[in-house]
Write a protein that binds this DNA or RNA. Structure first.
Length: 208
DNA sequence: CAGAGGATCGGCT
DNA sequence: GCCGATCCTCTGG
């Protein structure tokens, strides 16, 4: 039986907890939990260990050239899910990060699996190692069953996807250049939990 | 309407 | 480390 408390947990991160501003939010989200309630009511999620910041004045950001149909949720209020499809194969999940009218978001690049591991493995394949379950932005979305149906979801209110402060313990946060870009590749706007074994990208980008 | 490119992943060398 | 898959989105004509 599903109770209202399960559908609307009271340990959510809300707009009163989270900083407004893309790089501040990207750093804040390291150590925060991302939780997903699946259609059958089961819970999956993990601890965010890697993020990237994308702002309106950044040539690598989808919002750089103004609003389009794809990126319009980037221009809405903060703490909403921005989900898009890339390379014909993968979804990427972002958290919007600025006041309405400014197009910006934080890409969720990797999680340490925490809740519902058997279910996550169903999504990712039986031979997938625990380390690789949610290591990379496309894997996060596949493992947690995030697709464009969740684009625009309000993480403060939506029953399917939310942020939780968890233990509140903040790991040391490192900063590096972002991954996979052809433009503005030099900007240091990737944030990661120092020492985590669940980070994507080459080891050289994530020194302790 | 055609063309190009992409905030990736998995398999192979 | 390199390469192909795969398809959506945006841009320009």
């Amino acid at each position: 039986m599903t109770t209202a408390a399960q559908l609307a947990p009271d340990d959510r991160v809300t707009r009163s907890h989270a900083p407004l501003g893309t790089d501040d939010l990207a750093r804040f989200l390291i150590g925060v939990r991302l939780m997903r309630r699946l259609d059958d009511g089961s819970l999956v999620g993990g601890t965010i260990v890697e993020t990237e910041a994308y702002t309106a004045d950044d040539p690598a950001s989808h919002s750089y050239r103004g609003p389009t149909r794809r990126n319009r949720t980037m221009f809405g209020a903060s703490l909403h899910a921005y989900v898009y499809f890339i390379y014909g194969t993968a979804y990427c999940l972002n958290v919007t990060s600025e006041a309405a009218g400014t197009g910006a978001a934080v890409l969720i690049r990797a999680l340490e699996p925490l809740e519902g591991l058997p279910r996550i493995r169903e999504h990712r394949g039986p031979t997938c190692s625990e380390r690789d379950l949610l290591r990379g932005p496309g894997r996060v979305c596949q493992g947690l069953a995030v697709d464009r149906e969740l684009d625009g979801a309000d993480l403060e209110r939506d029953d399917r996807l939310w942020l939780s402060p968890g233990t509140g313990v903040k790991p040391a946060v490192g900063v590096s250049v972002r991954i996979g870009l052809s433009r503005a590749a030099e900007m240091p706007r990737r944030y990661y939990a120092c020492g985590s074994r669940f980070l994507s990208g080459p080891r050289s980008l994530s020194p302790r």
